[in-house]
Amino acid sequence: MTVSWGAYRRARRRSRQAWAVLVLLAVSLVASGVWFFTAGQFAAAEPAVAGPSEVPVFDGTFMKPVVPVKPVPQGSALAALEGLAVKGRAPKDNYQREAFGQAWLDVDRNGCDTRNDILRRDLTAVVFTEGSTCRVASGAIHEPYIGQAVEFRRGSESSKEIQIDHVVALGDAWQKGAQGLTSKQRQSFANDPLNLIAADGPANQQKSAGDAATWLPKNKNFRCHYVARQISVKASYSLWVTQPEKDAMKRVLDSCPDQETITAG
């Protein structure tokens, strides 16, 4: 079979083009491999989580201070942690939510219950229900525990997406000194803005009554503030920590040794 010179040249051209494509693919694969085995594998293993590194405590435009057992110690969170007593857990079989008073009281007597105060403090673009200057109907939040933007809408089901978390859980507090507080002090503890954060509902449910040894926010950028806030609350209400809890707190604060305690200021 005779092949013309033109057909031969076209075949050669197609062959060179095919080889060029293969070379480009090989170069791309090599480059991808170099990236993965240097920085890429770490980026894949540790996805960046955006979100706030701290959350406000007090807004004097509509909130009034809650009186704790004693003031939060000023200065280093690590130093405050060293000032906390270390003990084992007390029994929990006699724990009842009612020991901390009725849920979401207006303890600062500003005319709004605590839950709405915290929603108003932590959300942006807040809209109140019609005829109210207190009851939050909707808003937006850059949620601190998971580091994602979340919309809040009041409703029988939708309200569960954003819950108000006790930074030091009531059940944890009960086992670490709160049984020795007065009823009024426990009521203040449960409604103190220092101990409350608007948070992702599923994350809050996962945390339950856990301490730093058993649960930390997924958003690593927030952990220093979160642990410092737990320390501040425990110091302010004369609560103690367990040894595993203290160890977990120290591990977090090792990454931010200049972290200070959290106060209303």
Rank of each mutant, 00 (worst) to 15 (best):
H142N: 14
S238L: 13
R121S: 02
D192N: 12
W240C: 10
P217W: 04
R10T: 13
T214W: 00
A7P: 00
V57N: 02
N110Q: 07
A149C: 00
K218A: 15
F62V: 04
Y8T: 15
T114I: 04
R120P: 00
D172Q: 12
N116C: 07
Q41Y: 06
G177H: 03
N191L: 03
T261D: 06
D247E: 14
E54G: 10
R115Y: 11
W104N: 13
L81Y: 02
C112A: 15
S32R: 12
S156G: 09
N110I: 06
C134T: 10
P193V: 04
F62Q: 03
K176P: 02
D93I: 08
L216G: 05
A213R: 01
W104L: 10
C256S: 03
A18K: 13
G139R: 09
S132W: 10
F36P: 00
G265Y: 01
C256L: 02
H142M: 12
Y226C: 04
D59P: 08
C112R: 10
F100G: 03
T261S: 08
A178P: 06
N116S: 12
A99Y: 12
T114Y: 02
D106Q: 09
K87T: 11
A48G: 09
K250V: 15
S4A: 11
P257E: 01
L181D: 08
A213L: 04
L119F: 15
W5S: 15
A7T: 10
N116V: 07
L170Y: 03
V30W: 09
Q41A: 09
D59A: 11
F128H: 12
R121N: 01
S208K: 04
E151H: 13
A198G: 02
P202I: 04
V136S: 08
L105I: 06
Q230I: 07
R13Q: 14
W240T: 13
A7L: 11
T124A: 08
V3Y: 06
S208E: 03
A43V: 13
A7E: 14
A90T: 03
I146H: 03
V86D: 02
P144H: 04
K184R: 15
D172M: 01
P52D: 08
I164H: 05
W240K: 07
R223M: 08
T38V: 09
F36L: 14
G111D: 08
S15N: 05
A248Q: 01
H166P: 06
Q185E: 15
E260M: 07
Y226D: 06
V57D: 01
G60L: 01
I197G: 00
R154Q: 14
P68N: 09
P91S: 09
D59K: 05
V67C: 02
R10G: 12
F42W: 10
L216K: 05
S76T: 08
N219E: 06
V136D: 08
T2N: 10
D211F: 01
F42Q: 14
G88P: 01
G60K: 11
L25P: 07
I118V: 15
S238Q: 14
W104C: 11
N110V: 10
V69H: 11
D93L: 09
N195Y: 05
D122S: 02
Q230L: 04
M1V: 11
A80M: 09
K64T: 12
A199V: 13
G180T: 12
A213C: 00
N94H: 07
S232H: 09
V21K: 03
V86M: 03
